[in-house]
Design a protein around this nucleic acid. Structure first.
Lengths: 223, 223
DNA sequence: GCCTGTGAACCACTTCACAGCT
DNA sequence: AGCTGTGAAGTGGTTCACAGGC
């Protein structure tokens, strides 16, 4: 399989892939990391997808969007595939994330250990609360909002997590965009209006519970 | 439109609807609540979907899965549609949720105000930390794990949020199932193995950041 | 034998377009 | 005129099935 390793650092295609695919890629990555921790060196598309309720064919099709990573008759080498998926997702290099809003949720994100091992860390935090500004929480410095643009520019931060009250979210998002952010993870339960160039991922905890409520009330089987 | 209001309390169909549809239903609900707050009495499928980047046809098709809620030539009455969507999602009656794990994330959920207005509240919390057991945090009593089954049975709790470390998640999930829970909102970054009868919604914060990373690196436009 | 990678078939979801109601 | 509800058409995503490599 010499040919494959001579290709440019993965993601040859990148010709617009659906979020369904990339979402599953993240699941494969998580699963592979568990497999490695359990001492597995290789796996098959079937064994990789099984615990996730995903067929082998689906796993192979998903990966086929980005290249050829498997070995016929053998399967996939876990460590190698982990590296490839990280390259695809862009997490082979670490990301520094700016956090805005140090309420309950913000502080939870500050202390969340799950980020580090996936290649993310909160690099700086912002809040409007004077009592917080200047302090260091969980090892992260807290700045006031006026310093946002300069701090984000100086530290070359591209991603931000927005954990402010709904009413403040759009205003803060605008400031983050002005500060030069490229992507935004929004926890506020509002629909943000942003320039096309800004990537947005939304997490609304109440909506997740609503989806659970629906599933329970309707006892629907799949998905 | 007398006929419609004589129909059984909505969700006539319920014949297996995709999560794509129900996810958008939650977004419509959120949007409608904002419209009401801004003083709107009615809206159209187009105006409802626009801020969400969803076409009017899509909005109408989604609602058509559950009945007829609109008025030709007029649109939808916001308050009425809010009520209908809540019935569909099962949030017209309040849900009491059990929280397991009072670490950073768990405490954030305890104090999260966004739940209440969508019809959810944390009714009870559990942890293994002796220092926590017996205390009351944010007005919620904290119990030890051995009391889980009896407390959940006594309070007839059907939903649980799982905010424990990854390594403990499967074991706690099993206990929750034994305690009679019907649906589980899992924040631990592991794939849980549960009986078919248990509904599961997963939120993995690191995965959300990975999706953002991919979107930024690949500068892909649409969803 | 086992497993990948992939065209072809299949299925589901989305968009279109229009009849019918207000 | 404006808007819903819905069959029909179109698009995209998933599953099938098999050729080819280990």
């Amino acid at each position: 399989m010499a040919e494959r390793s001579q290709l440019p650092p993965a993601l040859i295609t990148s010709g617009s892939v659906s979020t369904a695919v990339t979402g599953r890629l993240s699941l494969y990555l998580r699963e592979l990391q568990h497999l490695v921790r359990d001492g597995h060196e290789t796996t098959s598309s079937k064994r990789l997808g099984q615990p996730l309720g995903i067929t082998g064919a689906q796993v192979r099709k998903d990966l086929a969007n980005f290249g050829q990573f498997g070995y016929p008759g053998v399967g996939y080498r876990c460590q190698e595939l982990i590296g490839q998926i990280k390259k695809i997702l862009g997490t082979n290099q670490p990301w520094s994330v700016a956090l805005v809003g140090i309420g309950n949720l913000g502080r939870a994100l500050l202390g969340y250990r799950g980020f580090i091992q996936q290649g993310f860390h909160i690099g700086v935090a912002f809040d409007i609360d004077r009592a917080m500004i200047g302090r260091t929480i969980e090892g992260i410095e807290v700045y006031g909002m006026p310093e946002m643009a300069s701090v984000i520019a100086r530290q070359e931060i591209k991603l931000a997590a927005l954990a402010v009250p709904a009413a403040a979210a759009q205003g803060v998002a605008d400031q983050l965009v002005d500060a030069g952010i490229h992507g935004l993870l929004n926890f506020a339960p509002v629909t943000l209006s942003l320039p096309e160039s800004i990537r947005l991922v939304e997490v609304d905890l109440a909506i997740e519970l609503e989806q659970l409520s629906f599933a329970v009330v309707n006892r629907q089987q799949k998905n």
